[in-house]
Design a protein around this nucleic acid. Structure first.
Lengths: 342, 342
DNA sequence: CTGAAAGCGCTTACAG
DNA sequence: CTGAAAGCGCTTACAG
């Protein structure tokens, strides 16, 4: 038996107006909180009927009329990355609290897909765009030209200025170097994607600069890079190349936890122990590290706070304020140390 | 300097019609693929202008008129769970391919929030609802009464029938028991939340039933439960209680990977080795297991395939087909075995 | 304090 | 093959 019973139409403004014996204009004003413009008894009656019938304004009608929706689009590469999931979760909650809904788009880090979503979200009359680790693309340039409210997360706008939410990546890299220095480890390496984003490049540069400042010569800090779809694959390729070429370093800086996970995998495969044979420092400090990666010291990025920061930036843009940076504090989380120290 | 330059209005149907010297009706038909109803040269001209001006139909107008949007709402508890992230990622991609957009709502497993989102999405004229591990709630009952297109993922509809996408949880639990039997481990335990969802209860029951069938008496299979916001906390509480009460078992079945992670943490804290001292089997097989949890054997759930299954179910519901179950295959992924076997 | 009216951008049954 | 017209549900400037 196929059930094709037509779904009941939700009550419209007109239905409420008819039931209350007033005009649609009056109901609209009351629903939108303009309580002072109607007689108290009218307000009371309308509000009662609204509740009774479970009236909800139809957003298509409202958006059409106001030429704007309450939709905010988040464009992110690869939702499977726990850092992305953490950002999405906190942003979703913060937007919801502010009365918006978030549409999540997975760009797979491809400019063409990013542009397609930018266009699709524009057709949805999106009120704002949250671009997590955005890539350069013609559509992004067009959105900038139209002065759309854009907020860049993690990775700065590669095409010019733009509101930004993230951490101080150079400083984070430097603090990783300090950590190795404190432990007296100077046989170091850094692993990264062959094609670095600005974010990763800043972390790597911050690390290398501090190493130099600490007197660890360039020859003692090796670099290796890899290619692949994820930092897992990239990291695996990089550490394998590094270990094959000159043996394992005593310490390795990974500009993301996923790269660090790859190092752990190869070490495990080769029977080495982390951190005793090689001390690893990552970035992100994904929530699972505390549970199953006691070997990983990592620089925690406060993703749970990103949501509020994103909303703050969007609100500022809507109010016409100029774009600015919002830099949140990171923190080195030290876990197991080599030789059972600490 | 505050930049308040008004954003340019995107071209409307009327603009295109004017530019092409035809009526809005004709443009609408062509844009919607009714090519046969206009002269070929008209079609060609309109299509050219559509491309030139970058015309995109305004979805608010279309939704208003058609009384339906291309929005599909996904309601999920806790996006931070990697299983949820995997489901969200694959569903987002599949819906996008089918021409829809997904709005992701985080219900935090709270009935009131679930209802609020159900209402909000209804006001958005959502065309369908993907309910991941949904909870029972008045709003869900109301949505069922309205015959909304609902698809339940992971957890069946607790309030009646409903299209379902998931695995055979009893069988999964049974296979975990088989695995222990093959290893000759019969000092077993199972950990779970104090308040079990149907999904988890099925896994646990399937495990216990198979244990009984294999001749492992009830006294040799201990149970412990815990409470908390996440399976991490729940698992930690459960394994601690179990170990404190009667010592560590030789094998433990965890109906989710997160519970298994908690077991690993306590074992590490107490200086025990997994799987040598205690062999752990989880469920989900999150992507990171392959990289940093070589100690964890887990029953893989094919989340990357869930998206297509969800779209299949939604499409069937839209076509008026009756609700049915879509059971996808799981697979036991065996990793390191106790005593270096395997 | 309240309402009539216009209009947001689209679709579609109808007429020709 | 094409268009005029109505209407989806809402908001708002205007008039009273």
């Amino acid at each position: 038996m196929i059930n094709r019973r037509a779904r009941a139409r939700p009550p419209s403004l007109a239905d409420i107006a008819a039931a209350a014996g007033v005009s649609a204009a009056t109901v609209s004003r009351i629903v939108n909180g303009e309580l002072g413009r109607a007689a108290p008894e009218t307000v009371e009656r309308v509000q009662r009927i609204v509740v009774e019938r479970g009236y909800r304004p139809n957003h298509a009608g409202r958006s059409l009329r106001r030429r704007e929706s309450q939709i905010v689009a988040m464009l992110a590469p690869n939702l499977d990355n726990p850092a992305m999931a953490a950002i999405a979760a906190s942003t979703e909650a913060a937007l919801r609290d502010a009365g918006h809904v978030m549409i999540l788009c997975d760009t797979h880090d491809r400019p063409a897909l990013q542009d397609e979503y930018l266009e699709a979200m524009r057709a949805q009359l999106a009120r704002g765009y949250v671009l997590v680790s955005a890539t350069a693309s013609p559509g992004l340039r067009a959105a900038m030209a139209r002065d759309e409210p854009l907020v860049f997360v993690n990775r700065r706008n590669m095409l010019g200025a733009g509101a930004f939410v993230g951490i101080d990546n150079r400083k984070a890299g430097a603090e990783a170097a300090d950590h190795f220095a404190r432990l007296g480890i100077d046989d170091l390496a850094v692993l990264h994607p062959t094609l670095m984003t600005m974010t990763v490049a800043d972390r790597v540069e911050g690390f290398l600069e501090r190493c130099a400042a600490l007197g660890i010569e360039g020859a003692r800090v090796r670099r290796a890079s890899g290619e692949g779809a994820t930092h897992l694959d990239i990291g695996y390729q990089a550490i394998r190349a590094l270990a094959a070429a000159g043996g394992w370093p005593k310490g390795v800086f990974c500009p993301s936890d996923l790269i660090a996970y790859a190092v752990y995998r190869l070490a495990t495969e080769q029977g080495l122990s982390i951190p005793d044979d090689c001390c690893v420092v990552g970035v992100d400090d994904n929530q699972f590290n505390a549970w199953i990666a006691p070997w990983l010291t990592s620089i925690a990025i406060p993703y749970p706070r990103f949501g509020a920061a994103v909303v703050e930036q969007l609100t500022a843009r809507w109010a016409g304020a100029p774009a600015r940076d919002l830099i949140l504090p990171h923190e080195l989380i030290v876990r197991r140390l080599p030789g059972g120290r600490g």
